[in-house]
Design a protein around this nucleic acid. Structure first.
Length: 587
DNA sequence: GCCGTTTTCGGCCCGACTGTTTTCAGTCG
């Protein structure tokens, strides 16, 4: 059982416990455990196998009990506690709890009073007006549930960051042009640069006073944004709308003196904030979205000590202003205690792009066009890495066509200005039975060999690993591209033991790709962080199939920053010559 | 269920908004 599956079990346990009205801190412990497990770069099954269940308690938030349950899961594939809970609670109520506005308490009341255990039964109960008579419910609640059922049916999944970006920019423009809006920033997971966002958060600075008339004006303007479908809620400082796309957006309006505190607060993550506010409490301080305050002897909010800027808020706790990408309650507090935070990699640090396609296979631009566009983007070198012959649908290259392309590259090189290089590369498929799609003597002639797996993605783990590790052991391979093969919201990854893959890369002196395509972002942040700890350099590549495709590098940089990578952890921040020293090629 | 130079027991972040309540519970982030 892999980490993600273990995390899913703990989430499920937490949901069921919540439904049973269990101790909320116990529920939190399971949710925290799920997050820690999901964030762990090491395979917990491997930890149990190598060092025993006891070693799991080294994970923050995992104690003796959760460690035992993880061991039970990896050893038996089952969790007795979960099965007992499922016997007590009808599984359908978990769906009921996912309807907006329904939580564990209301779901429990619906089940107890009306026997509602599925979404269908919930709909029937609402339509026959039986819900409105329950204590704590009313006609409005009933209507909201029916509307919420429609939303739940359209199963809105999280939106890829890059798909949310146009909406975010349009809202910033729409509100930013108002004179009353002094500052506006997106917050939440969008600001943290997560690969997907659940909803959007916007924060507005309205000036010294929280003037009701001004707030009204800003909210009216927000509600008039062209994509807004309906207003979900509207209060004195906070407003929520639903876009036609189904995406929700929150607006918070605060006075200038609270802007930093509010930005910190609404950027999250939730777990990061829990840690921050816990630290505040230890120091006799209280942090909320309005500022940092001293706590009086009677526990009431006292003198204000910070709030204008995020720097001040963090400084009040002797913490650095964490880059938003790091605020996930993973290792950032540990890093802060160890010294200055690492300087995270930036787009400007990248000097080369080592994965792209041309019209020779499935690209839309020619060799010359890709080279020109890359040079205009300020890159110093690129590798042309078209597909190999196994990828027949893309017109993959055999040895003969590949050598022709390399001859063209030789010709092109003669025309290039000093300071820009085009490298002879290939994205060579890793065959289903193992081994590379082109012979070693051909690969040996390349400057840069990207190995990747496009076929046989459903094979069992052992075979997938044999293929990937085999590629890393090939003396001429430089790197494995999109190592897990996942497509965000579309396709699961292959059954890869990423820690073993990283170990194999380290052993063979090879690199691993962070594919910057926003649908891939593969390796992800957690795995890139794991590669860093094992000393395996990451290459951020566009995998561009067009001139425009080169622009995705920034998404890769964002993911790398979330992994805590600095420029020196990313191989293509180096010159091509320096980069060559990182890769062990040839025998 | 986790955790600890204020602790191995008694804590565990904090506020806005809604709908149903006559003073607040539930949900959400």
């Amino acid at each position: 059982m892999n980490n993600r599956e273990i995390a899913a079990v703990f989430e499920r346990v937490a949901d069921l416990l919540e439904f049973q009205n269990a101790n909320p801190f116990r529920v939190r412990a399971y949710r925290g455990g799920a997050r820690r497990v999901g964030d762990s770069p090491e395979s917990l099954a491997a930890i149990v196998a190598d060092r025993g269940a006891e070693a799991l308690t080294e994970l923050d938030g995992v104690g003796k009990d959760l460690a035992g349950k993880i061991a039970e899961l990896v050893e038996t594939g089952r969790l007795e506690m979960l099965e007992e809970l499922l016997a007590e609670v009808p599984a359908g109520v978990l769906d009921v709890m996912r309807v907006p506005g329904l939580g564990p308490k209301k779901a429990a009341a619906l089940h107890k009073e009306l026997g509602v255990a599925t979404l269908e039964e919930l709909r029937a109960a609402c339509e026959s007006n039986r819900v409105r008579d329950l204590k704590g419910f009313g006609a409005k609640t009933e209507e909201k549930i029916l509307a919420g059922l429609a939303i739940a049916a359209s199963a809105q999944e999280r939106t890829r960051w890059a798909n949310a970006e146009p909406t975010v920019l349009a809202v910033l423009e729409h509100l930013g042009t108002l004179d009353e809006v002094l500052r506006i920033d997106p917050a939440g997971s969008y600001r943290r640069g997560r690969e997907t966002v659940g909803d959007l958060d916007f924060l507005v600075d309205i000036g010294e006073e929280l003037d009701a008339a001004l707030v009204e004006k800003v909210m009216d303007r927000f509600g008039a944004f062209e994509s807004v479908d309906s207003v979900v809620a509207r209060g004195e400082t906070k407003m929520t709308v639903r876009m036609a796309s189904g995406l929700q957006a929150d607006l918070r309006v605060v006075p200038t003196e609270s802007y930093g505190a509010a930005l910190q607060y609404f950027t999250g993550s939730k777990d990061h904030n829990v840690e921050v506010r816990g630290r505040a409490k230890q120091r006799g301080l209280r942090i909320n979205e309005w500022g940092v305050f001293k706590t009086d002897d009677d526990g009431e909010q006292g003198e204000r000590v910070a709030g204008d800027s995020e720097e001040d808020v963090y400084a009040a706790l002797d913490l650095p202003r964490f880059p938003p990408e790091l605020r996930e309650a993973r290792r950032e507090f540990e890093l802060a205690e160890a010294g200055p935070l690492p300087e995270l990699v930036t787009l400007d640090d990248l000097r080369g792009d080592l994965h792209m396609h041309t019209t020779a296979t499935d690209g839309k631009a020619t060799l010359e066009e890709m080279a020109t566009a890359a040079r205009e983007r300020g890159l110093e070198y690129i590798a042309i890495t078209d597909h190999s012959k196994r990828v027949s649908m893309a017109g993959g290259l055999d040895a003969e066509r590949l050598r022709k392309q390399w001859a063209m590259i030789d010709e092109l090189r003669a025309t290039l200005p000093k300071g820009f290089s085009v490298l002879k590369g290939i994205e060579c498929d890793i065959l289903e039975k193992g081994g590379m799609d082109l012979p070693d003597d051909v690969l040996a002639e390349a400057d840069w060999v990207v190995a990747s797996l496009h076929y046989g993605q459903q094979q069992p783990r052992a075979q997938i690993m044999k293929r990937l590790v085999g590629a890393l052991e090939n003396p001429w391979v430089s790197i494995v591209a999109h190592p897990t093969g996942r497509l965000i919201n579309k396709r699961e990854s292959y059954d890869v033991a990423v820690d073993e893959l990283i170990a194999a890369a380290a052993e063979n002196g090879k690199l691993l790709e962070l594919n910057a395509n926003p649908a891939r972002l593969d390796l992800d942040d957690v795995h890139c962080a794991a590669a860093k700890t094992k000393g395996v350099p990451i290459v951020i590549s566009s995998d561009a199939h067009s001139v425009e495709g080169l622009a995705v590098l920034r998404h890769g940089v964002q993911q790398a920053r979330r992994a805590g990578l600095t420029a020196s952890d990313v191989a293509n921040t180096r010159t091509w010559k320096q980069l060559g020293k990182l890769v062990r090629r040839g025998e």
